[in-house]
């Protein structure tokens, strides 16, 4: 037997909890899972968009950080490792 809350309500609660913990990618995923139920709420949409943007920004930061490491490594050693080449290709793609 299930609990009292619906799956969408539970996703919303988990999304809020993730947002509090600044785990934006989880918050984004949970909010998407309950968008049908809460999509009409302005507050919900603001939180969902903000969480989605934050998740995207953080992914971008990771990419940039990897790229910076790659540049530093190339400058210091004068050659690329296989990993750096992969990152470089990903970034270009």
């Amino acid at each position: 037997m299930d609990g009292i809350l619906t799956p969408e309500e539970k996703a919303y609660c988990r999304g809020l909890e993730a947002l509090r913990k600044k785990d934006y990618s989880v918050a984004d995923k949970e909010f998407r899972a309950c968008a049908k139920l809460y999509g009409d709420s302005r507050g919900f949409n603001i939180m969902t968009r903000a969480a989605g943007l934050m998740a995207a920004l953080q992914q971008e930061k990771v990419k940039i950080s990897k790229l910076e490491n790659h540049i530093r490594e190339t400058a210091e050693n004068g050659e690329e490792t296989i990993v750096c080449r992969q990152i470089s290709e990903e970034s270009a793609g």
Partner: peptide
């Protein structure tokens, strides 16, 4: 800026969010 915006929304609805997290 986004963190500020999210922080503001969370602070405004703090007790309601507390309740929902606890209920879950």
């Amino acid at each position: 800026r986004l963190a500020h915006l999210i922080g503001g929304v969370l602070a405004k609805k703090e007790s309601q969010i507390d309740f929902l997290i606890g209920l879950n």
